[in-house]
Design a binder for these strands. Structure first.
Ligand SMILES: NC(=O)c1ccc[n+]([C@@H]2O[C@H](COP(=O)([O-])OP(=O)(O)OC[C@H]3O[C@@H](n4cnc5c(N)ncnc54)[C@H](O)[C@@H]3O)[C@@H](O)[C@H]2O)c1
Ligand SMILES: NC(=O)c1ccc[n+]([C@@H]2O[C@H](COP(=O)([O-])OP(=O)(O)OC[C@H]3O[C@@H](n4cnc5c(N)ncnc54)[C@H](O)[C@@H]3O)[C@@H](O)[C@H]2O)c1
Lengths: 226, 226
DNA sequence: CGGACTTTGTTCCTGCGTTCACAAGCGGTT
DNA sequence: AACCGCTTGTGAACGCAGGAACAAAGTCCG
């Protein structure tokens, strides 16, 4: 045991992990701005969370701040990146290069956060060969080959809903263990595979519900509040 | 009190609301397929949730099934749509018609779920005039006018991060109360305004964390399991 | 060198969400 | 008409996340 630096391997709740990713983004911005240290209050404000909650989140990684001073920006940034497993870039594939898939594949923000798309796949021959974000689109038949070549474990699904499950099955068979799914269907996967469902319509409908619960009525100039 | 049909106005947890939206989507598919009734088990399976939890979710709307039989698909669908406030179409605006904004604006799935974009706004003169999904892109200066014209209360922000807060401020001032934000910044809004943050990088980073927690090591042909 | 101030790390507690399990009710059947 | 099986709806318990308050610790200043 050469590295007994890590204080304890406490289990980190998934909700905390999601927030850690937000903190990491904010810290990167601060580091780029040349900031050396930051307090929990300032970080929490920038991340949109409670300061006490933020300190609790960070405490899962063990003590990493200096009392009376705050947190060292570069050190904390590196520590978060290691905890999240994005120290070195991770390879991903994206299946379904339509409108949404193309937008995601061309987005520079993923690369700066430690993810690179090594495979862009589509079933439409007309799409194959297009270059998006520096990578050429390949036929979906190459799926297994691309996954094996790069040891890919993360995939993004942006196909039409009816074929999403079959695409998912192929990905899992090929060895993918983590999937972000944008198609509006609940993917069925074996144990050990994680799916994160991103459903934009649901976001809008939740807002619509909250709106109507506010008793919002703007009729002409008459505003009725609850 | 002419309508005392509603049994009670219990408060519905936000997590439940998000699931109700999923049930509504599944029910719409079942209705299109001509199904007359469905059991909680089947619905739960299609939605990817626990059957008991689904029944509890639905019970917030009051009893709406038939014991020994299940739920009537069209009736439940209508009831959910009313509860979520998407009975009639709701008007939205979208600010930032770049790659992501264009994909969203051209997506037909929003229209079928009760949302229509009555305003597409961008600061780039080169984008203004483009027609996406049947609506022409207008200059961002028209923001206040469009919101007022249609009584818009819901907005989608897909601008670059640095300008998202200022766009948000203008939206709130114009009367918008609900915002879906794709820019990777925590928007500051006054009380009474809801923001739903959609951060795709966070989704990937959560998966990356789960991946490394599995102890995934695929080195050559050697697979190490926890 | 000492004291006071600042900020972290932790503990407790409250409330929510989820799950399990059972009673209640309806339809079909004999 | 009564019984039986199936499914809903609800009550209770468990676990978890979030928030507030407090103690520990390090720095800065006098
Ligand atoms: N565009 C949006 O804003 C948006 C919003 C919410 C959800 N979605 C969902 O995201 C998915 C994609 O949306 P889109 O607007 O990009 O649709 P799209 O039709 O533009 O793109 C779908 C792409 O998938 C490809 N495809 C079809 N079958 C395939 C297969 N078997 N294997 C590989 N590729 C295949 C098609 O060739 C096409 O390029 C849909 O499920 C949609 O419901 C999209
Ligand atoms: N594209 C993706 O897949 C993706 C993924 C995650 C997050 N995001 C985020 O979504 C946002 C948009 O991403 P994108 O890839 O579409 O970027 P983009 O540069 O293609 O589009 C941004 C658009 O916003 C417009 N704009 C700039 N300033 C504006 C202003 N003040 N008012 C109105 N419009 C203005 C620009 O003219 C441009 O059309 C960014 O914040 C990005 O970080 C995008």
């Amino acid at each position: 045991m050469s590295e007994s630096r890590e204080p304890r391997a406490r289990v980190i709740p998934e909700a905390t992990v999601a927030r850690l990713a937000v903190y990491l983004r904010v810290l990167t911005g601060l580091a780029d701005a040349g900031r050396a240290s930051v307090s929990s209050g300032e970080l929490a404000s920038a991340a949109g969370v409670n300061p006490a909650g933020l300190r609790k989140d960070l405490s899962y990684l063990g003590p990493c701040g200096v009392r009376g001073v705050g947190y060292a920006v570069p050190a904390l940034r590196e520590r978060l990146a290691r905890a999240l497993g994005v120290e070195q870039s991770r390879s991903c594939v994206l299946v379904g290069m339509g409108n949404l898939g193309s937008a995601l594949a061309g987005y520079a923000g993923f690369g700066t956060r430690g993810f690179s798309f090594v495979g862009l796949l589509d079933a439409d021959p007309a799409r194959v060969g297009d270059v998006v974000g520096g990578t050429a689109v390949r036929p979906v038949d190459d799926l297994e080959q691309v996954v094996a070549e790069h040891g890919v474990t993360i995939a993004v699904v942006t196909t039409p809903a009816p074929v999403a499950q079959s695409v998912c099955d192929r990905l899992v068979d090929a060895g993918v263990r983590s999937i972000v799914n944008f198609a509006p269907v609940a993917l069925q996967v074996p144990a050990g595979v994680d799916v994160r469902q991103v459903d934009l319509s649901v976001e809008l409908q939740v807002l619509a519900f909250l709106d109507q619960q506010k008793g919002v009525q703007v009729v002409g100039e008459q505003v009725v509040l609850p």
